[in-house]
Amino acid sequence: MTLAIGTTRRPALSLRRAARPVIGTAAVASFLILWQIVGANEIIRSDLISYPSEIAETFVAMSLSGELGRNVLATLGEFVQGFIPACLFGIACGLAFALSRRLRYLTAPLFAALYSAPMIAFVPIIVVWFGVGRDSKIAMVFLAGVVPIIINTATGVNEVSESWVRAVRAFGAGKWQIITKAILPGALPAVMAGIRLGVGRAIVSLVAAEMYVSILGIGRLIQVYSNSGRAAEIFVLVGVVSVFGLGCVMALRSLERYLAPWRAER
């Protein structure tokens, strides 16, 4: 093992620079090949671990039959319907907490409790309240997403530098303009961080809620195939959920670039 720390860094050779992607790709490729060999030759029972080529075939089959599309759309719909209100309400609420210290102190313990609680534990009670259909999933997405957005918005607004507000006020801005021209742009990075956190929590809670009980959706598919012990289908669905999460992260990044182009230049 070579010590990477403490050794003086030599000027990077082109070989060195290529090392990261090359070694990374090689590791992933050898893992996939090993998996394929072990699975396809039944060295370990393939219904337990499946293997890459079977997963690829399953993915194609599930896409063609429309099974995947239908369920992805259902999950996506629940996510959007829960998360957009969570963003709007969360930012408004966070703003109110930041502007009123008393209000913030009043609600701090409740939000601390909601923030550090494992969100999944709320799934059963939410199902009791909102039923087994779409409503309980939308409520779960909202609940899981809104808390970090509120907390981060409140923190972000508090940390907007006083000089921004004074500068805007010096040019004759009213209270509303101070909020839209100084406070919201200044708090944007923190708000976006809260939204990113919220997305992660919301996806996990949504999938958990669908797995717990539902009629349509990726989580339900996962539950169905796990009951019938189908590893290949589950791996496909794991991939789908990952891509979904990744897509959200990328969409948020481009939204942030659009809303705050001055930050991208740094």
């Binding site: 990374g24 893992f31 996990v204 999938v207 589950i234 794991v238």
Partner: peptide
């Protein structure tokens, strides 16, 4: 952290575990 070889080789797997919703697994 100490060996670049180990870091480069394990990085994609760690990244996957970090970003994939393990609940689905």
């Amino acid at each position: 952290g100490m060996s670049r070889m180990v870091e480069y080789a394990t990085d994609p797997f760690i990244w996957f575990l970090y970003s994939a919703p393990l609940i689905a697994l």
